[in-house]
Design a protein around this nucleic acid. Structure first.
Lengths: 238, 238
DNA sequence: GACTATCAAATTGGCGCCATTTTTCGAGTG
DNA sequence: CACTCGAAAAATGGCGCCAATTTGATAGTC
């Protein structure tokens, strides 16, 4: 009883971060990624139950792996859990979608400063390529390709950010809402609109035009209600 | 083989959100909370290894519960995992602390609008009480009490926010860094400073003084390097 | 004397089985 | 005919055991 504290107080034998031998492992992580992918393709629709038996057959893995993967996705709010009932793909009402979009605008607009400060001609060139790749995927690829191209463009833009926690928060938010319910992909016009805005963003970065890039980013995320949004947050767009 | 899709496509039998019978359960969640609490008291220091055998004895639970709890805390970035090595309490360098603080400032400053818009005399009164309670805990309580009082004050303030996703992001960020490494608690002077700022916040809300509340919040979070921070983000403080 | 290889102890991680809870289906009754 | 009660089926969730990997130390060698 009296050794509880000492038992808990196991200092790491290595003083520094024990990260060197960090092999990337964990089968559960792989299963989580595959479930996430199937959610994003629409194979697993929002609201559908994720029965452990089906998943363990589908992905050819153990029950434990399925449970850990589902728990991981639950922590990322992509699926929801009801104890003794099971897991199901999270559902999104308009309110929640709007709230997530608003937080994304707040964070991604805040990232504009670093992006413009640290942009080099090389990175501008790379961003131009990725914007072009999105255009190509728009014409020749399926929605998966388009989504990947979109993520690649925005990921490269965020790579310019020095604040890794900011980037992580943005990425977490992006991945917390399944692709099929993201409004960008609901109409051809919106996707083309996004492609145009990508090109404008690259030019804004090239010109170091902060206010314009802020407006572009805000519009890009919350473009389905830009008037209301831009009205509410006008003061912080510079 | 050809029934894979149908097998995966289990629609929820209930069309609406099956939340009514949502009993709050999960023993692993309880264990995760207790581990989190022990991390925040400093009993489990940053960098120390979280051996599953010790934890399962300490909290009188099964190995599975410990693993799920650790996985949950890993998803919240409070602990880190190295496959085949184990879990340890996340370590924070100055860089990461600064990055987290910056994201918190971005989000909590953005929350000021809603807070002031929706503040009523009753909520102002409640916030005054909570600020006073923090003062009392500062003199009579231990650090745990002080931390709880601090969380209660800021939680009540954020309750005024309509954007629940914004509130959740802020809370997640707050809980992602253990109390012992939070700079607020490193000196008596800083805690007293925070107490004073709480009172000023209440008055700013009462007067509907947006710019001042923004500055207060920014200072409150990033007060250890206010000059640099306020310089970089001056444009968005109104 | 220092470095390396080998071996034992300890820890993590995976798998199968069973208890518990929930759901569904069917029988009985007012 | 509808409503309730009850039992069987299905799904979740927990527990113990065993293999795989890593750690730490000991002995051997250059």
């Amino acid at each position: 009883m009296n050794d509880k504290v000492t038992m808990l107080h196991e200092q790491s034998t290595e003083t520094a971060e024990p990260s060197p031998p960090s092999a990337k492992g964990g089968k559960a992580e792989e299963i989580a990624s595959r479930i996430e992918a199937d959610i994003n393709t629409g194979l697993l629709a929002t609201g559908s139950w994720l029965k452990q038996i089906n998943l363990e057959r589908r992905y050819g893995c153990s029950r434990i792996d399925v449970r850990q993967a589902l728990e991981s996705l639950t922590a990322r709010r992509l699926v929801h859990r009801i104890p003794n009932r099971g897991y199901y793909v999270s559902e999104f009402n308009e309110r929640r979608l709007r709230d997530v979009a608003e937080v994304r605008v707040i964070l991604e607009v805040a990232a504009v400063d670093d992006i413009i400060d640290r942009a080099t001609p090389a990175s501008v060139y790379e961003l131009g390529d990725l914007a072009e790749a999105f255009n190509i995927a728009l014409n020749k690829g399926d929605r998966i390709d388009q989504n990947n191209a979109n993520l690649a463009f925005h990921g490269a833009m965020l790579e310019l950010c020095t604040n890794r926690e900011l980037v992580r928060s943005i990425m977490d938010l992006r991945r917390s809402v399944p692709v099929p319910v993201q409004k960008i992909w609901t109409s051809e016009e919106r996707v083309r609109n996004a492609a145009d805005e990508h090109l404008l963003m690259v030019k804004a970065i090239e010109r170091h035009d902060r206010p314009f890039l802020r407006r572009l980013v805000a519009n890009h995320i919350a473009y389905y209600e830009p008037a209301e949004w831009l009205d509410r947050h006008e003061w912080k767009l510079g």
